[in-house]
C-alpha cells in the first residue's frame, strides 16, 4: 500500500497551492479590468448603462458564488462548448470579483467632493478626462486598502472551485484525505496554508487603512 509521510502530504498541498495562487491572481486581475469598465459605466450617468451595472452587481452580490460556478459550468455547456472546470472557475470568479470591486471603487469615487467634478467640467474636460486626470488619481488613494482587503475574499473564494472539480488547495486536501484517512492533519495544514496566504494581505490592508487615517 502506498504510504504518505507528513512531508508527502505537505509537499502535495504546496504544489496545489500554486494553483490556488494562479487562480486568485487571474480572478483578481481580470476582475479588476472588468471592474474598471463597469465603474465607468456605473458612474457615467447614462441611464441604460447604470441600470445594466446595477442589475449585474445585484445578481453577482446577491447569489452564492457556488451557484455562479454551477451556472457557468452547466450554462456554457448548453451552447455545445466543452467546459473545463478551469474555464468555469476563471469566468465565475472574474465576474464575481468584478461586481464587488466595482461597488468598492464606486464608493471611493463618490467620496470625492462634488466640487472636483464641477471644477473639472468647467475646464471643459470630457467625462473620460475628468475620471482619468481628476477623480481616479484621488479615488485610487482611498481605494487601495479596501481593494487589498477584498483580495483576501478572492483567495478564499477560489476554495469553492474545488467543488466543480478544479484541483487547487482545498480539492488537494480532500483527495489527500481520501488517500490517507488523516482528516485532522490534512485540513489543519490546508487551513494553515490559506492562513499564510491571507493573513499578510489582511494585515497589510489594515496597515494602509491606518496610515490613511493619520494623513487626514
Amino acid at each position: 500500500m502506498l504510504q504518505f509521510s507528513f512531508w508527502d502530504i505537505l509537499s502535495n498541498l504546496l504544489v496545489a497551492t500554486q494553483w490556488t495562487i494562479v487562480l486568485s491572481l487571474i480572478a483578481f486581475f481580470c476582475g479588476g479590468i472588468v471592474g474598471v469598465i463597469l465603474l465607468f459605466m456605473r458612474t457615467s450617468r447614462i441611464a441604460p448603462l447604470e441600470w445594466f451595472t446595477k442589475i449585474y452587481i445585484e445578481f453577482f452580490q446577491g447569489t452564492p458564488l457556488l451557484m455562479q460556478l454551477f451556472l457557468f459550468f452547466f450554462g456554457i455547456a448548453l451552447f455545445g462548448v466543452e467546459v473545463s472546470p478551469w474555464m468555469a472557475a476563471t469566468l465565475a470568479l472574474t465576474f464575481w470579483t468584478s461586481a464587488f470591486l466595482t461597488e468598492i471603487w464606486r464608493g471611493c469615487v463618490e467620496s470625492i467632493p462634488k466640487g472636483q467634478w464641477e471644477a473639472s467640467s468647467s475646464l471643459a474636460l470630457s467625462y473620460i478626462e475628468q475620471m482619468r486626470y481628476v477623480i481616479l488619481p484621488q479615488a485610487s488613494r482611498i481605494a487601495v486598502a479596501p481593494t487589498v482587503g477584498f483580495s483576501v475574499q478572492v483567495i478564499k473564494g477560489t476554495a469553492l472551485a474545488s467543488i466543480i472539480g478544479f484541483v487547487e488547495l482545498t480539492k488537494a486536501g480532500t483527495m489527500l484525505n481520501n488517500a490517507t484517512f488523516r482528516p485532522f492533519l490534512v485540513y489543519s495544514l490546508v487551513a494553515l496554508i490559506y492562513f499564510c496566504l491571507c493573513f499578510p494581505l489582511s494585515w497589510w490592508a489594515k496597515k494602509i487603512e491606518g496610515r490613511l487615517n493619520v494623513a487626514r
Binding site: A159, L160, T170, T174, P183, F184, Y187, A191, Y194, F199
Partner: peptide, 22 residues
C-alpha cells in the same frame, strides 16, 4: 484572525471530517 483568513469550506471540512478524529 484564524476564521477570517481561511475559507468557510475548509472550516466546515475541518469540523465535519477533522474533529471526529479527536
Amino acid at each position: 484572525e484564524l476564521i477570517r483568513n481561511t475559507p468557510f469550506i475548509v472550516q466546515l471540512f475541518f469540523i465535519f471530517f477533522g474533529l471526529p478524529a479527536l
